[in-house]
Design a binder for these strands. Sequence first.
DNA 1: GTTGGATAATCTCAATGGGACTATCCAGAA
DNA 2: TTCTGGATAGTCCCATTGAGATTATCCAAC
Lengths: 230, 230
Amino acid sequence: MSRVERAPALTTTSFAILGLLAIQPWTTYELAVQMERTLNRVWPRARSRLYEEPKKLVAHGLATATKESVGRRPRTVYTITDQGRAALAEWLQSPGEGPSLEFEQHLKLFFADFGTREDALAGLAASRAWAEQQLDVFIESARAYLAGEGEFHQRSAVTSVGARFLVDFYDLVDRWAAWATEVVQEWPDDPSRADPTLAIDHYILQLAQQRASRLAETSDPPPATAKRDR
Amino acid sequence: MSRVERAPALTTTSFAILGLLAIQPWTTYELAVQMERTLNRVWPRARSRLYEEPKKLVAHGLATATKESVGRRPRTVYTITDQGRAALAEWLQSPGEGPSLEFEQHLKLFFADFGTREDALAGLAASRAWAEQQLDVFIESARAYLAGEGEFHQRSAVTSVGARFLVDFYDLVDRWAAWATEVVQEWPDDPSRADPTLAIDHYILQLAQQRASRLAETSDPPPATAKRDR
DNA sequence: GTTGGATAATCTCAATGGGACTATCCAGAA
DNA sequence: TTCTGGATAGTCCCATTGAGATTATCCAAC
């Protein structure tokens, strides 16, 4: 029973930090800033959490801590160990969880019939503003990156694949909110009196089916069998 | 200083429950099941939370609790009050937070260069499987709904707008994972040796810019000014 | 010399997740 | 008739987490 086994269990957040350490050594502060600027988009965590994780990594032998100081202010630089690289590689072998979404504006729209049409339109405008904001930040950093200001160019083959998902996600939010705005504008003042035509539902079902069949066609394992197994 | 002011503050989750109560009275169990089946997609919360929220609503005077029983088993039916409807309408006036994403598979892909190409492909396959699963469930319920089995047809005008976002989101995950699979298949066995061509980055930047300009064209307030104000 | 923003954390409390636990009801199988 | 499994109807608890308040130093610019 070594002390290692008593250390708090490693979480996905631990491995997110460990992954950053695999790129280069960082101080805890740098790790926190880096997380907030990048990984926060797909793995949002409170800053205070980010200061705890490297300590766990050290307790598990996956990283080492080096105390340095800038003047009288101490700081801790963390470096990944061979054991840490092995643990990271092992973690990467399992695929992980699918996406989980939290979307308050969408939730409010679900209850739009208990408010006014203007409320719904304001919410959709906020969604579009959010998407625009995200894209602005994204374009800014992508431009800087391509201009050579960014670091880690050698990782670009890997990171760009994920970046495309984010751009497309922000685009989705914008397109959807734009479409929804047109639909909602046709509503009467009191949305609960909006015509409950099922036309849109049929359309959605059709879309969903098209896409499900596209999935079946192009999925890797022999599709017919794979579908039946479920 | 009435007791109401001492009750725990209302959260977004409280209003999610309150919104359901605005449709009809429910027991706590029914509320929990309904949340898990529907609102969970945009507002995921632990079941134990859902049992606490109606009590808060009662403490705030937004709902009333009626004790009933089925045989010897007691149950509580919650009903919204006029004050509750007013509070819901007021809550709907503010637009709420933009989307927040948690996506472990995407996170692992970000660190793909510390694992194998096969790991990355397995993760992408899992993303596609997830999207397929979500679409299957969605199609199933949409079909039942259109066949007349579902309830709340009169709310369809409102709910279908949100439903479209979800279908498109699942589609996005699938399309992206399919595209990414093709890209990753071209990588060498060791992804850290993948060619760091910036072609994809340029493409992403181009996409992002196109979309940002589309946003500027179609946004509600005079676009040029709105952009400059930021 | 002062000020403000960046660096470098720690601490705390309320909120939350996730499950273990209890117990009854009811339909269908044995 | 009894038994069983799944649905109904919750409660309870603990570890994790979020969010922010707090402290303090460094450093460049005014």
